[in-house]
């Protein structure tokens, strides 16, 4: 039981020129077979045109406890959004 295949994260590019998106994970002995398994498991119904696989162990994630320091500062920066600015009606669409 100790010889378990490692875990891979699977990313698929959908049909319409979008980014690759994380769709799930799977076990495979190596990258080549991870792609084949991903094809069998995650693209059985035309879901994609391209697959990326990454060993799960290689992913570095931000800690849930860092959510505040990382993401809250942007809450206060409303001037980064176009809707912050009033454009006079006479100017028209901008």
């Amino acid at each position: 039981m100790s010889n378990e295949w490692p875990l891979w994260e699977v990313f698929i590019r959908g049909q319409h020129g979008l980014n690759h998106r994380h769709v799930g994970s799977l076990h495979a002995p190596d990258a080549e077979l991870a792609i084949r398994h991903a094809r069998d498991v995650y693209t059985r119904r035309n879901e994609g045109v391209s697959i990326w696989v990454v060993p799960s162990a290689e992913i570095t994630a931000s800690a849930p406890s860092d959510k505040g320091p990382l993401f809250e500062p942007s809450n206060a920066k409303v001037y980064r959004h176009p809707t912050f600015y009033d454009i006079p009606d006479e100017v028209g669409h901008m």
Binding site: L7, S25, L26, H27, V41, R44
Partner: peptide, 19 residues
Amino acid sequence: GHGLYLYCAAETLGVSRDD
């Protein structure tokens, strides 16, 4: 495939599929 999606969901809780 359904079995695999679910095993993967369980694995995120710290149990291995072989287990």
